[in-house]
Design a protein around this nucleic acid. Structure first.
Lengths: 204, 204
DNA sequence: AAAAATATTGAACACCGTTCAAAATGTCAA
DNA sequence: TTGACATTTTGAACGGTGTTCAATATTTTT
């Protein structure tokens, strides 16, 4: 009958409401200021009631993580405009780095925070992450087809490329680039990426 | 007179006692379980008294971070045995990755946790970090002298190289390599690093 | 021995995630 | 409509966290 349907709908709406509140708090005050109690406050429910909709805080963070990936993926696929596979890969990295700098809290949730890692146990449980990774792999396959990365395994290069840009962004977000004057930070980060990729731009 | 001297010595000893307790808790229970109250408990003082010796928790973490770097640096310089600069660089990366995997809590404190980043504002305030980075730069300079990384800036390649290995370790520690079966994780990580570095092994 | 300086305490403040008995609300058959 | 049952929501309680600060205890100096 319709009652169960409505209940299900209500439950879904409540979940959305909770996640919306969580997103707003994370955006306005920063991810590290997010708490169950603040969400409850915002939606005018008691803290305990959140647990009727989510198992725990980690599950909420996992949902935020999925949401962030949605936004991230949309930014990533913009590089498809570029025809040359190698230059596309270069822009791929640049877009990645820019996203991290411009959306520190989203980046945090996607790649740094522990919580989602506990939910993610295998590739099937991380479709959002896989989708973005597969898109990178595609780009690198195109590079291999064009004669680059001779003798290298597709997976290896993909993981290395991802690690390179993640390393740049996460060291930046954790203020570990103390050797670089603040005003030059972002150009130097992009320069480092360029240097690496330029050194890989050779056939055979 | 000797009284002030003894007091200074006592204060230093107390600081060491606090840090020793902090290190033990972090080692035994994990860094995320470390707290002021636990330290106070261990040394049989009240929580408040810790604040007579350290400004706050961040200052304690900063000291732990310095300590971790000491251990890390000692591991790093072992690569000096290798004569060929490029193969030395390869081992440099391998040792870095291994250290991260084998000492997750130390790695966390050195490169992932926010706290030290707030103390680190410039290169002079991060001598421990700089020492290790300079050692990497030296190795890369040797590679450049040997004809590798043609047309690239020393600093850029160094930052990129560091970012690459940090990316690998930190994605691993945060369980973001869900696409890799657990049993293969470590060899695949090393393989990814090898792929990248092999693609950079060419002169001119 | 008294006074001044210093060190230490621990309760208090403002938070946190999570649990759970109890109260409130909603559903449904009689 | 009423009473029984099911569901939802509450909010206090538990065990944590970092930090502050008036009060107490100890040490040093006079």
């Amino acid at each position: 009958m319709g009652i169960q349907d409505r209940k299900d709908r209500d439950k879904e709406e409540m979940k959305k409401l909770i996640l919306q509140a969580a997103k707003e708090i994370s955006l306005e005050e920063g991810f590290d200021k997010l708490s169950i109690r603040k969400i409850a406050d915002k939606i005018e429910y008691s803290p305990g009631s959140i647990y009727s909709y989510f198992k725990n805080m980690d599950e909420i963070i996992f949902e935020l993580h999925n949401d962030a990936f949605e936004k991230f993926y949309k930014k990533q696929i913009q590089v498809n405009d570029i025809k040359d596979p190698f230059e596309k890969l270069r822009e791929h990295g640049k877009v990645y780095i820019r996203f991290g700098i411009e959306n520190p809290d989203l980046y945090e949730i996607m790649f740094i925070v522990k919580a989602p890692g506990n939910e993610i146990e295998s590739a099937n449980e991380w479709e959002k992450g896989m989708k973005t990774f597969d898109f990178l792999k595609q780009n690198i396959q195109e590079c291999i087809d064009a004669g680059y990365f001779k003798g290298s395994d597709l997976n290896s290069i993909s993981i290395a490329m991802w690690s390179l840009v993640h390393g740049i962004v996460s060291l930046y977000l954790r203020k570990r680039f103390a050797m670089i004057p603040k005003d030059y930070l972002i150009p130097v980060m992009n320069g480092a990426f360029d240097s690496m990729i330029n050194n890989m731009k050779h056939k055979g």
